[in-house]
Simulated scan of single mutants.
Amino acid sequence: MGDRLRSVRKRRGMTQQGLARESGVSVSLIRKLEQGERNDARLETVRRLAATLRVPTSRLVVDVAEEGASAAVLDTWAPVRAALTAPSGDAVALDEPPTAEGVRAALAAAVPLFSGDRFAELRVVLPALLRDSAVLAGLDPEGRALRVRLLQLTGWLLTQTRQFEAAEWCLGAALDGSADRLQGASTVNTQCWLLLRQGRLGEARALATHWADETEPRLSRAAPDELAAWGWLLLRLSAAAVRDNRPDEAEDALRLSHAAAVALGREFAPDGDFLRAFGPVTVTLKRTENAMVMDRPDVVLKLAARIPAGGLRPTSNNRNRHLLDVANAYTMTRRYAEAVETLAGVRDAAPQWLPNQRYARDILGRVVARRRTLTESMRSLADTVGLPV
């Protein structure tokens, strides 16, 4: 990365000090990157450098990944990952094999655990459910459909907890087993999110573009689930483009996604699937996210004020992620009390989700660094998100 950064900076006729001044990135970090003392940086940092140098983010570095799961997290989830690839024969009980009715009921009972970010309970129920579904997948079409649905949810969960390698395997298996285009698009939606979290911006853009083109419906006659699938793929394309310093492309994708949302006219979850919930509020949430990526806290707060409090229930998939952007915008505008209050609200809504969010740790870290003394709420949140002492 250092060689690429130095080359582009020199081509632009900028000094390290000039780049630091215009990008807001410290000159010491720029120097360390160019001298090879640091081999990587956060995606947010690289995007700022790329925007200042007027190049795509991917021109500076190919992969700028989020931090993967810690060793403690990997150990905790090891039984789930083992169950993913266990031979199907291992899932057969000693006295009776699993049944489609039993797995269907168990999966239905597990869905609220996924949507509610109840990770501790999922760690308990998932190994047996994954093994049983593997047996059924080889027996009949319904068994295969149940297996694909479970793999979609598990791939989303593994992405959420930053177990990226296992998530990639899981989502690839779900896509291979998809029965139709819309089921495949649902899996690809999560695959794009996984690529974004790994910093693989070019791959995310290409995948979202291909599938958006493949699933584009005629708005005048499209079914709601088609509009939701197409709209989400466009949102993923927009997210990849804005992070790759392609704002016009990001805005075009958002505009098309908004058209799909307008055609729907409401928030809609195909078959009650929280992962595919889409509509006008979802598009506004993602427009707010794009504004935060582009360092526009004023736009973030302006858009956030228009979103109805009851527009979406608090989920890690939608509103909670949006609230982290709001907290970050408050931090950037020195409204630290409001930032902490927002983070505390997210913790109350999703106590098992927040500790897995590196973004939340970064936000709180900036608040703590700018305060001479910490409130009890700040200290408690620091413990929740694992802020280093």
Results as ranks from 00 to 15, higher is better:
residue 160 Q to K: 13
residue 47 R to S: 08
residue 149 R to Y: 03
residue 329 A to H: 02
residue 382 A to F: 05
residue 144 R to Y: 04
residue 217 P to N: 05
residue 241 A to P: 03
residue 134 A to I: 12
residue 320 N to G: 10
residue 119 F to N: 02
residue 328 N to W: 15
residue 11 R to G: 05
residue 206 A to C: 11
residue 110 A to S: 09
residue 209 T to K: 12
residue 81 R to K: 15
residue 195 L to P: 03
residue 68 G to P: 14
residue 6 R to Q: 14
residue 243 R to A: 02
residue 141 P to N: 12
residue 110 A to D: 04
residue 81 R to Y: 04
residue 54 R to Q: 14
residue 90 D to L: 11
residue 311 G to P: 02
residue 159 T to E: 04
residue 35 Q to T: 14
residue 275 L to D: 00
residue 190 T to Y: 01
residue 73 V to H: 07
residue 220 S to Q: 05
residue 187 T to I: 15
residue 76 T to Q: 13
residue 99 T to Q: 07
residue 290 N to L: 15
residue 337 A to S: 15
residue 270 P to Y: 01
residue 107 L to G: 05
residue 130 L to K: 03
residue 9 R to L: 05
residue 101 E to F: 08
residue 37 E to P: 12
residue 129 L to C: 03
residue 52 T to E: 03
residue 324 L to G: 01
residue 121 E to S: 11
residue 38 R to N: 10
residue 295 D to P: 03
residue 302 K to P: 04
residue 189 N to R: 09
residue 236 R to H: 10
residue 380 S to R: 15
residue 114 F to K: 05
residue 145 A to T: 13
residue 172 G to L: 06
residue 76 T to A: 14
residue 337 A to R: 15
residue 88 S to D: 13
residue 83 A to C: 11
residue 95 D to H: 11
residue 244 D to T: 09
residue 242 V to H: 07
residue 63 D to I: 15
residue 317 N to Q: 13
residue 29 L to D: 05
residue 294 M to K: 11
residue 202 G to S: 12
residue 194 L to C: 07
residue 287 R to Q: 14
residue 4 R to D: 06
residue 359 Y to S: 08
residue 96 E to G: 11
residue 279 G to W: 01
residue 262 V to Y: 00
residue 284 T to A: 09
residue 112 P to V: 06
residue 256 L to A: 06
residue 171 L to E: 00
residue 13 G to E: 12
residue 86 A to W: 08
residue 3 D to W: 15
residue 147 R to L: 07
residue 210 H to C: 10
residue 328 N to G: 13
residue 279 G to P: 01
residue 249 E to D: 09
residue 99 T to M: 08
residue 37 E to V: 15
residue 274 F to Y: 10
residue 184 G to L: 03
residue 183 Q to E: 15
residue 259 A to F: 00
residue 307 I to W: 02
residue 170 C to G: 04
residue 282 T to L: 06
residue 353 W to Y: 11
residue 287 R to W: 08
residue 336 Y to T: 03
residue 291 A to Y: 02
residue 371 R to N: 06
residue 7 S to G: 04
residue 102 G to I: 13
residue 139 L to A: 08
residue 124 V to D: 07
residue 110 A to C: 10
residue 265 G to N: 00
residue 5 L to R: 04
residue 374 L to K: 11
residue 118 R to V: 10
residue 60 L to E: 01
residue 42 R to F: 11
residue 45 T to W: 05
residue 136 L to R: 08
residue 21 R to M: 15
residue 53 L to P: 00
